[in-house]
Design a protein around this nucleic acid. Structure first.
Lengths: 222, 222
DNA sequence: ACAAAAGTGTTGGATTTACACCCATGA
DNA sequence: TCATGGGTGTAAATCCAACACTTTTGT
């Protein structure tokens, strides 16, 4: 470990920013404006600066390229195949991000992108680099983690119905859950606080709930 | 993501090579011979070469510095605080490695180290860089993962008794388990094959078992 | 004989699953 | 009135936790 002498590599971060929309997991992709992958879709990301942490770099790039700030971000995996970038050795530290639905439309394309778009993970366009693997790894991580953490709080608005909460789990897990058992379990965990308000619609009004604590905790949910 | 232009960082790998000895988790550390941390204990690791994958780099450095080859290795987390190395920007991709006890004595110090030693994770010497965090993260990962995978196969010799298997779980998890329930559960999972031999000692001979499949699988164990 | 670990079943409680009907609203 | 989702309880099955005595060997 003698930094002065060794071969150098560029370190980048890439972010798989996820959300659930219309009952399906989506990820944010941007259409690159220039460079060898001009016209291709990629995950937001970019080079790590000399004086910032990896977490800071992920938040900064995400904000610069998509306008999205202050979301849940966690380091996912580091992709370092020597040929993953045709231009040279780039080691990419991938992150998963989670955005609640009320902020989906805050996204705007930064300089690097002609456009950004939410795409269902089940129907992605061809992605540049190894970004398809990044998305696959992110989905795997989410699937695994929602079952034993309260992570979905980062995918939900401040107030939601139990039906919406259940749809969230179903979308991430890709399977349906029994409604009565789901309610019993979640209410028994004490993670939620009833807000005393209701959501109205073309049906019986539904009680609204919020998370008692909006920060990551491990709790056996399913 | 324009590799040609950006600021450069050095990419390294560090390996927390773990084993269970005398009923306790141990990690392999080496006493650095030269450089600014001469005399300090560090985890084996080193710079990633231009043309190798991260996994290859981890295996190569481990083999070069400790003589240990062909062990279970999995990527753990990437540490990139700008000040983690006093000499410059080094982003380190950390790995966890697992070695079975019959290979503990294959370790020999490579050129970089004056000596290498197995130390209990509960009683580590001061480690250079952020290697204490790496070990802590590795232990956390192992604790979490043994409960829902068959990972312990990588910590056990080809033949072992159920008692030894149980001690392995107890050492990693840091708690005791009920013997009868443990046996019932593990035998019911069908992960083990009885070898038809026994281990003798100053007590009743114990049946020997091996893992049916020595590769990572997710199985709910505890 | 003794020490040390191996081997072995049952029971009660808790948890999980499966399952069907009525309710309140907006259109 | 109809369509839509909200709200609710029970019984069976399964899983999990707790628990003690006998066996075989080496010394």
């Amino acid at each position: 470990m003698t930094p002065a002498a060794g071969p150098r590599a560029v370190v980048a971060v890439d972010i798989a920013l996820c959300t659930v929309r219309d009952g399906a997991l989506h990820v944010l992709v941007g259409q690159t404006r220039t460079g060898p992958f001009a016209g291709w879709w990629t995950l937001p990301g970019g080079l790590v600066r000399r004086d910032e942490t990896l977490d800071d770099a992920a938040a900064r790039e995400l904000s610069a390229q998509t306008g999205i700030r202050d979301v849940y971000l966690e380091q996912l995996y580091t992709f370092g195949h020597p040929a993953r970038d045709p231009q040279g050795r780039v080691v990419s530290v991938a992150y998963v991000g989670l955005v609640p639905p009320e902020r989906l439309d805050d996204v705007r394309a930064g300089d690097k992108y002609a456009q950004v778009a939410w795409r269902p993970v089940a129907d992605l366009p061809a992605l540049a680099y190894d970004h398809a693997s990044v998305v696959a790894t992110a989905v795997e991580r989410l699937r695994g983690k929602v079952a034993y953490t309260n992570l979905v709080y980062a995918l939900l608005p401040p107030a939601f119905t139990l039906g919406e909460l259940q749809s969230m789990y179903e979308a991430v897990l890709g399977r349906t859950l029994d409604r009565r058992n789901f309610r019993k379990k979640l209410l028994s965990l004490g993670l939620l606080k009833p807000l005393g308000r209701t959501r109205r619609g073309p049906h019986r009004p539904a009680a609204l709930y919020g998370f008692r604590r909006r920060r990551p905790m491990v709790v056996e949910i399913l």
